[in-house]
């Protein structure tokens, strides 16, 4: 069976498909996130190397921080696709991703602050990882602000897509701020990534929560895309024929 992917690049045929996918992703999100957190709180040791029980912030901290970074890449992907093919739906996806990305970035900073206070004794420090993550939040906010400042949707889409592309430079900086080959070169307060050395149960809990967060992001991005479609296409004839409107 071959699927005609281009069929779904039109808002009219994508809208009902997204409506069917949202409950699936939402159920997966709830099951995986709660399952991961259950495993993280009840099946893991009370200490992680020198850290006491407060290390359990790790499950939501890593999941939100990864999503913050990945969603930016996803947003730029759709923005670039929009610039190349001039497809309306790609821009709508980019727009829908930005808000969830900003929420995830804010959550990673918030949970990081609480973890930082317990393990380092400070809520905030101008350390490379934290500073670049804060810049990422400003980039998301800049994208949203620029888009809403331009009345014409098509021009807003293109202008903010360019801004998103330029901002992509921050992603490798965030990644290498704790993963650089020479630890002295990226010496910072934030510990290095040590996923390969972590206890198996903690690793399972982290990965399950991360999978849950992915599913959650798919669900809410699809929900927001559907809202954007309705907003922008409210005068089209296909919208008037929608089952929900009868």
């Amino acid at each position: 069976m071959t699927i005609n992917w281009f069929k779904y690049s039109s808002p009219a045929s994508f809208y009902p498909l997204a409506g069917k996918l949202i409950p699936v992703f939402m159920v997966l999100a709830i099951v995986l996130t709660l399952g991961g957190l259950y495993w993280g709180f009840f099946q893991t040791p009370d200490v992680l190397s020198d850290q006491k029980q407060y290390y359990r912030i790790i499950f939501v901290h890593i999941a939100s921080a990864w999503m913050a970074m990945w969603l930016y890449v996803v947003m730029v992907f759709w923005a670039v696709l929009g610039l190349i093919f001039n497809t309306r739906l790609s821009y709508m996806f980019a727009c829908a991703t930005a808000v969830t990305g900003a929420i995830m970035t804010a959550l990673s900073l918030w949970t990081g602050a609480f973890w930082g206070q317990t393990s380092w004794g400070t809520w905030w420090d101008w350390d490379p990882r934290m500073t670049t993550q804060l810049i990422l939040l400003f980039l998301y906010m800049g994208y949203i602000a620029l888009h809403s400042a331009i009345d014409d949707n098509r021009r807003a889409d293109r202008a903010s897509a360019v801004l998103a592309m330029v901002g992509l430079a921050i992603v490798p900086v965030i990644y290498y701020s704790i993963n650089c080959p020479d630890p002295n070169a990226c010496a910072s307060l934030h510990q290095e990534s040590s996923m390969e050395r972590i206890e198996t149960n903690i690793f399972i809990a982290i990965m399950t929560t991360v999978a849950g967060f992915w599913m959650y992001c798919f669900a809410v991005i699809l929900m927001r895309t559907r809202n954007i479609i309705l907003q922008r296409e409210r005068k089209s004839s296909w919208v008037a024929r929608l089952e929900a409107l009868k």
Partner: peptide
Amino acid sequence: YVWCSMGAVAVLM
């Protein structure tokens, strides 16, 4: 610290 982190995640999500 743990519940303030988990709470914020729960509220926003």
